[in-house]
């Protein structure tokens, strides 16, 4: 047996017991969602412009048929993101984000940070499924289908099986409002969400 054949055999034996998990597809999709949720510079620049006007804003970032927008809980900061192909939409209170009317948004701060004064309203097209997988429903239930994240800066409301809504308030805005006010404002935003049309 020559070296090539011996190597081929050794490599085959070495990986013979290696098998991909049948859950790989699910893990990949979950990971993909998380990547979408991570803050990216491109998104941050956009939010700067939005935050600078010190007005209530909501953003809809289209990320595919199932998940249209996201924001992720991070230890020290609440962040939102866009992927390069997404088209951001800015709306005032009363605006519609992916089929969800945002009835109420508070005034936020006027800060220099790229992503700290905004409020993100993200609509998940698969209702509660992705949100449940991502642990967004693990927080305290504050109303029917409404969950406040442990960070206190994020609230989730499930409107129906095609509209799971995640609302995240920026760090500076949260700091300026104070913890109690943030919770109150988040609950008011959640209460103000409704299906459009």
């Amino acid at each position: 047996m020559n070296t090539e054949e011996a190597l081929r055999e050794a490599m085959s034996e070495h990986v013979a017991e290696v098998h991909a998990s049948p859950m790989l597809g699910r893990s990949v999709r979950r990971r993909s969602r998380r990547t979408t949720l991570r803050l990216r510079t491109a998104g941050a620049g956009l939010v700067t412009a939005v935050a600078a006007v010190s007005a209530p804003v909501a953003m809809s970032l289209t990320a595919g048929p199932a998940v249209s927008v996201g924001a992720a809980p991070v230890t020290n900061a609440v962040t939102a993101t866009v992927t390069p192909t997404e088209t951001p939409v800015v709306a005032d209170a009363g605006g519609v984000v992916e089929g969800v009317r945002v009835g109420y948004l508070p005034e936020t701060c006027d800060g220099p940070g790229p992503n700290d004064c905004g409020i993100w309203v993200g609509v998940y097209g698969d209702g509660d499924q992705s949100l449940r997988v991502d642990g967004r429903l693990d927080g305290r239930q504050v109303a029917e289908g409404t969950y406040l994240d442990a960070s206190g800066k994020m609230i989730t409301r499930i409107l129906d099986d095609q509209h799971g809504v995640l609302v995240v308030i920026g760090d500076d805005a949260a700091r300026e409002l104070g913890a109690d006010t943030v919770e109150r404002e988040l609950r008011k935003i959640a209460e103000g969400l409704s299906l459009a049309g």
């Binding site: 490599m11 070495h14 990986v15 290696v18 098998h19 991909a20 790989l24 597809g25 990949v28």
Partner: peptide, 15 residues
């Protein structure tokens, strides 16, 4: 695609 190719790709990665 994953069902058909993921194990082979994983093995390649291991090697």
């Amino acid at each position: 695609f994953l069902a058909a190719r993921s194990t082979a790709l994983l093995r390649t990665a291991v090697l």
